[in-house]
């Protein structure tokens, strides 16, 4: 009788242990995928801000990122014309420019059912040439998989 009781107890303990470790391993895998996606988001944000946006300089030294607003509003049309080219670089991603006046979608290719992590934000200075003012804004980058 005691032997059966002990066997049942050990089985229960083993089952609970297996369940716990199995869940932890699954969580680890999900975390690793999230981490990979997040790293990719950072890369896209870096690549986009450094290559597409204007690097404003002070006395010849690049000090901060800025966007010429006139160029930014033309960017969605440019992306549409060169879809394959942009897609090969950025894949499934969404890049939006937020200014205090509103938001502008610069690039958006993703399906509604795709997963994403927290977006990466890059604060930038938006330059309005006609008005001769620079205003704080930010680029929001999300990558989907």
């Amino acid at each position: 009788m005691e032997t059966i009781f002990v066997i049942i107890l050990i089985t229960i303990i083993l089952l609970i242990g297996f369940r716990f470790f199995h869940k932890t391993a699954q969580e680890d895998t999900e975390q690793a995928i999230d981490e990979k996606l997040r790293f990719l988001t950072v890369q896209v944000a870096q690549s986009f801000t450094k290559s597409t946006l204007v690097a404003c300089s002070q006395e010849g030294v690049v000090r901060y990122y800025c966007i010429d607003y006139q160029k930014a509003i033309n960017l969605p049309a440019l992306v549409a014309q060169n879809t394959d080219y942009f897609y090969s670089y950025y894949g499934n991603a969404r890049i939006r420019l937020h200014t205090q006046g509103g938001e502008l979608v610069l690039y958006d290719f993703h399906n509604p059912d795709q997963n994403t992590t927290r977006p990466v934000f890059v604060p930038v200075l938006v330059r309005y040439p006609n008005e001769r003012i620079d205003q704080f804004g930010f680029v929001e980058v999300s990558v989907f998989s």
Binding site: R63, Y64, L125, Q135
Partner: peptide
Amino acid sequence: SDEYVYEELAFNFILASLKHD
């Protein structure tokens, strides 16, 4: 990557905010 994102975000925020008109 988290640490990098936080530090970059903080530096970019300061630089862009100081030049804000």
